[in-house]
Design a protein around this nucleic acid. Sequence first.
DNA 1: TCTTTGTATTATTTATTATAATACAAATAA
DNA 2: TTATTTGTATTATAATAAATAATACAAAGA
Lengths: 124, 124
Amino acid sequence: MIIKINDMSDIPIYQQIRNQIVAGISEGKLEPGEQLPTVRGLATEIGINSMTVNKAYQLLKQEGYVYSDRRNGVCVQKNFIQKEQLSKAAMEELKCIIAEAKIGGMSKETFLQICETVFEEGNV
Amino acid sequence: MIIKINDMSDIPIYQQIRNQIVAGISEGKLEPGEQLPTVRGLATEIGINSMTVNKAYQLLKQEGYVYSDRRNGVCVQKNFIQKEQLSKAAMEELKCIIAEAKIGGMSKETFLQICETVFEEGNV
DNA sequence: TCTTTGTATTATTTATTATAATACAAATAA
DNA sequence: TTATTTGTATTATAATAAATAATACAAAGA
């Protein structure tokens, strides 16, 4: 899976990496058990410091998306914790997005349609 | 409208202020044309520097949520630009949230139900 | 033994966020 | 007029976060 960094973005690099890997897992581009690029490999590939990649991997590990050992590197989690609720942080962000949409005059139906499309296609 | 700052949060103070005002507008707690607290007043009230409040107001102004003059201070916009699409940033965040939900095994129906509730109630 | 893996350490640089102390122009009220 | 309140601009500084840099170490395997 190819990671692309946007230097113009105000989102920190380690967060961009984290987000793209979560998206990759969600879309099935990254299979459970599959090894992620090595810390040094990915750092070289996208031209950043290896500790920045490590920071992203640590975050993913802490969130339960990946696991690691010194033999096989960092791999995608095989059994994700199933949960019926969004995280507190995700709920806050969702509220923000919906507030903006409502102020912009978007109807509930239109918003739900966008969500449905993203949920099904995972992209655009 | 009362603004509450969470010191433990990793969200910058100016961003927290901005988010709560956008939420207030969306929920109708802040009426179009209504004056926001003054820069100095709000800063004193929540015990922060006035330039931090100013930064939040500048952001809101740039986003088109408020306008200002030296006579009436900063007021809620009266005519919001209507748009049928989410902003690019909002779309990116929405994709992230949905990716996380999908990995957690949440069904599309459950996710849409949450969105519907937030859209209608604007809270919790 | 040598290489690769993640990880730990320490230091430094850069960028962002927040504070501080003033100052100014515009508008209003006294 | 004078005094006050408004947002805003300026300049400096401090505190925090993000990113880089250069090594080093332990675990595992070839």
